[in-house]
Design a protein around this nucleic acid. Structure first.
Lengths: 230, 230
DNA sequence: TGATTGTCTCGTACAATGTACGATTAACTT
DNA sequence: AAGTTAATCGTACATTGTACGAGACAATCA
């Protein structure tokens, strides 16, 4: 019976060391970790549509169907890749920090940066459930805000507001990155019809490339609203 | 030569009225508008993956390949459907309104509502360019903020911040709607590992169903930050 | 030792899907 | 009448995810 690998953490049942002489391809054994890591490489290089099970297997030096022993299906590869990319490798959460606002800003900027390093992650978010790394980030954000003195009654609103802001900013930024072509088309349409869009034409909304600055400023405004005093 | 229909607005070259007697299927002629409208029906009913060119053609009482005379490819159907759903049918922009804040809130709530009526739209946003209806909404938002006295230097930041917030909130909400299953799994994981996520467990972040309230409150906070005085 | 079982790999095959191509038909133009 | 244009659609194909089942090899058991 070809049972799927269970979710629990088995001890790695290491096969005998690969016959390291004759084999031309010195491939490591497959594992979910290697599969996900390679999937992320592929996604970074080719985008969402570039991830094909056959190509992924090729990169791993394996047959296409071999992957299915380790992952249930392609959807699961997406899930794992997304969550993997969102792992927080920040400084250990020093509970002693007094600069809570700096901590929050750092956390959120890191969040955005992590996603922008892998632009496909923004496209994936809307369709996927929350993985453990996402939850961990939410937890860290929540605990930081809580320590900062946000009332329990306002905590969820604060968490979601900041989360929303980050997700929206990342989504927008990533989509502008995606297609210079479409963007140029949009800009042309905008310029051509500038009489229909006078305000955003005047403010050069679509031409302003200072995404990082806009993110920071907007985040400041939001935090000002969330925590009026300081 | 089978030239694609040009983008310009031709006069509808109406074919002779359908021989309204003998034909069993009293089908209207195909048009991009009918195609998009039917695509939206299908998307609402079956979700993103439910939109297949063959099924769309079936619903239209046409052959699959007939669609390609009116639209370039499936991607374009997505583009058109997304932008169509985002058309603003709000009250005529009364320039006389004094309650700019109310106007902004109304505009953004309507925006979110429009997208939540068609949850697939949130999943589509990250990958698509800005269509005319999206631009129109941005323009309306910008002009309202401008009238409200937001300085030109801050206008882009304000527009993007509010846009980000709406997109993020909609994306999140829609994804929670999508799969009760995944959500239950996430909640289980969360409960099981509650010692790892004490804060969000305590605040019942994932169980709080008052999405509308959270959206409103967060939006208020953000506006407080963007326009300190009032 | 030989048999059995469990783990893992992968070749083959199939169903689903987007769409290229070209035939076909009907209306309009000259 | 003859040609041109607009539109429809059947057929065919390439691409993809993945079901199925046969193997290869190790660990365990008899």
């Amino acid at each position: 019976m070809a049972a799927k690998r269970s979710g629990a953490a088995d001890k790695p049942p290491q096969r005998k060391a690969p016959p390291s002489g004759p084999e031309p391809r010195s491939e490591q054994p497959l594992s979910p970790e290697r599969i996900v890591a390679t999937a992320i490489e592929l996604l970074d290089a080719e985008g969402l549509d570039g991830l094909k099970m056959r190509r992924l297997a090729d990169r791993l030096g394996a047959g296409a169907m071999s992957l299915y022993w380790h992952v249930g299906n392609k959807e699961e590869v997406f899930d794992l890749a997304l969550d993997s990319v969102l792992a927080y490798r920040g400084p250990a959460p020093v509970d002693a920090s007094e600069d809570w606002r700096g901590d929050v800003v750092h956390l959120l900027k890191d969040w955005r940066a992590a996603m922008l390093r892998h632009p496909w992650s923004a496209s994936l978010l809307p369709r996927r459930a929350l993985g453990p790394n996402i939850l961990a980030r939410l937890e860290l954000l929540g605990s930081t805000l809580s320590r900062a003195g946000v009332a329990d009654a306002d905590l969820n609103v604060a968490i979601w507001s900041l989360w929303n802001y980050v997700i929206g900013a990342t989504t927008t930024r990533a989509s502008f990155d995606l297609s210079d072509e479409d963007r140029a088309a949009a800009q042309q349409r905008l310029t051509a019809l500038s009489q229909h869009y006078p305000t955003i034409e005047r403010s050069r909304l679509l031409l302003d490339n200072d995404w990082d600055g806009a993110f920071s400023k907007g985040l400041d405004f939001l935090l000002d609203g969330l925590v009026p005093k300081q």
